[in-house]
Design a protein around this nucleic acid. Structure first.
Lengths: 145, 145
DNA sequence: TATTGTTACTAACTAATAGTAAGCGAATAT
DNA sequence: ATATTCGCTTACTATTAGTTAGTAACAATA
């Protein structure tokens, strides 16, 4: 026990108090980052997938878009993943899904006000990515093992 | 063919030109979003995983942190995922990894200048998440099927 | 001396998620 | 009759995340 060795000059009572305090502090900190209480994670676990941000950026640039338009815009997304991502964005209230009961079916998607309020932050991130892309890629190349 | 039906009043020549133009436009747009040319994706594909942002936020709050400290801070991360994520952040040049050749081993992590420059954007996103958490959760509850 | 504890990991595995390929329905066009 | 359209599902495979157990190299304790 490394801790005990460092505490040999203080009384047993003090040791207990110090330990209690440490435990309480640790508990307090933990609550900030665990899955239930951390708002960042509750949102980013959804937004931070492979496609959500990309779709929000595209829908932010156009008033509305149909399913197949989006599918063509994002070259390498599968229909399934597009469906799944759009539904999750709809569930979170970030995009609207408007169904026209026609044949062949028509479904239009557009960004909501909530989605629009998120956009600037995503765009800032996107700008940062653009500006620092080279540095990051150099770093990746240098990094071995 | 729905498209052709809409173009029955124009000549064959015009149809071809219109089609060509559309194809060229589409090609141009595509290049903005595919995996190779889109900086957002190159960076977000790495940052946007389950743990990276969380680790950056924590390392942004403290000058330096040891491996096990981080492991305790993030209640539900496994050692493997912590290792993997830290290494990927290191490769991208967002965190520093300092090894002290001691027994038991000591490895300290801290955020780099590049990482610090990304932090404000992540924090802004985090703030947005905090402010809109309730709205999103309500929306999720309402959403059925 | 033997045992246990410490740290920052890896290796080998399983669970969860992402992605692929095919098909569907209901109408229109050939 | 057959092919095509659109926005999906369904059933499958591939990739990634996460779990559990173990490692080295010593320190402290019994």
């Amino acid at each position: 026990m490394y801790k005990k060795a460092l505490l040999t000059t203080v009384t047993e009572f003090e040791v207990i108090n110090v330990e209690n305090h440490k435990i309480m502090e640790e508990e307090k900190r933990k609550k900030n980052w665990n899955n239930v209480n951390c708002p960042v994670r509750t949102v980013l676990d959804r937004i931070g997938d492979k496609w959500s941000i990309l779709i929000l950026l595209i829908l932010g640039d156009t008033e509305k878009m149909r399913f197949n338009q989006l599918n063509k815009e994002i070259e390498d997304i599968s229909q399934k993943m597009l469906t799944v991502t759009l539904r999750s964005l709809e569930a979170d209230g970030l995009v609207n899904r408007i169904i026209f009961p026609e044949v062949p079916p028509r479904v239009e998607y557009n960004i909501t006000e909530l989605g629009k309020s998120l956009l600037p932050h995503i765009k800032a991130l996107s700008e940062w990515a653009k500006n620092n892309l080279e540095t990051i890629q150099e770093s990746r190349e240098k990094y071995v093992s």
